[in-house]
Write a protein that binds this DNA or RNA. Structure first.
Lengths: 197, 197
DNA sequence: GTCTATAATCCGATAGAC
DNA sequence: GTCTATCGGATTATAGAC
């Protein structure tokens, strides 16, 4: 019990602590400006412990990236189960992204805005990841259902969600003073007008 | 004349050659994956020559960034002189961005899509740079003129240009098969519907 | 499983000749 | 102005004790 008494962290808890700190530093400083020693110092663990749980710095970043992407994907999945119509789905997705950006800016910074291809060379581009594919499908199904006018699906998807993503970008860069959800109605209305029949 | 006979490059020509190669490598591999030695090798110049023209690797990247930003700004300036109305201006800007992305993908990759804050920590975020400010002003003036409906200017600008910028992103990531200009009409129509009175 | 110490490598920048 | 050679430092990853 002395180990626990000294508040040392071990096993799975240590692994998750390292992931937490890595997310914080990667999103704040970027992958290349963050050394393994930075993570070691902030997480108060040893280099050896980190390399016991992760094969390499790149594998650590990849694990973090895929885990967070999965989480977002699960939340989008839940929305698609709940909502049937294109407008309601789109609104719920934008709302989710806006809320997440406010609640966990680091997650959005790291997952959606970072240039993963520079440090995860073998990962497919994020636009082909499941959350983005689902978002495009929302629009494609809207076209089939006649809720969205006949148009190139890529254009429909970027028209619906592109403005929202730029707003997230501006918020994370400090350009927007007010929290994103306060813009939700206007942003969704713009996106919907853009694709409406 | 022996130096020229050996096709050695000197002076201003060398400086520009270094900038060219730096753009190519930075945009293809990223800033941190590109070493000064990579640039030296590809440009066939010496380390000493590079450090004679540029104070540091960071200063080299900053010079490149500001130069390309200025160039885009000048082109947007020309559009604003030519066109008076909001729709025509917006269309011309999107057209310019699309053409530029096809003609010089590296420029757009490096200027618009890279995370400059990671290696140019003292530069202001790109959303506060002149081209982006002008693009927002186009929409603000459209609101004043009654061409665009009354709305939050940030939302209007992201609604008009956000979809186009996502399309550029998709094209640079290899997701879109057809060149961007073939989507111009649809993209501009979407943006305009989004903000139309 | 976790630790410390260190190996092996690479990078940005400088020195000094020409 | 341009070159070559090299320094000092930081980084990732490993070795081996506990």
């Amino acid at each position: 019990m002395t180990a626990m008494a000294r508040k040392q962290i071990r096993g799975e808890a240590l692994r998750e602590r390292v992931l937490d700190i890595a997310l914080e530093l990667f999103s704040k400083q970027g992958y290349f400006n963050t050394s393994i020693h930075d993570i070691r110092r902030q997480a108060q663990v040893s280099i050896g412990a980190i390399y016991h749980h992760f094969e390499s710095k790149e594998a650590l970043a990849r694990g973090l990236y895929l885990q967070l992407l999965d989480r977002i994907d699960a939340e989008i999945d839940a929305i698609l189960m709940e909502q049937e119509r294109c407008l309601a789905r789109s609104r719920a997705v934008v709302s989710l992204l806006f809320e997440l950006t406010e609640a966990e800016p680091q997650v959005m910074q790291f997952v959606l805005l970072a240039k993963h291809s520079e440090y995860l060379p073998d990962e497919p581009p994020i636009c082909s990841s499941s959350p983005f594919v689902r978002m495009r499908q929302v629009l494609e199904e809207g076209i089939v259902a006649g809720e969205v006018r006949q148009m190139e699906p890529w254009v429909a998807a970027t028209a619906m969600f592109g403005g929202a993503m730029r707003m997230m970008n501006l918020r994370l860069d400090g350009a927007l003073q007010k929290p994103l959800p306060s813009y939700l109605d206007e942003v969704v209305e713009c996106g919907w007008r853009a694709v409406l029949t």
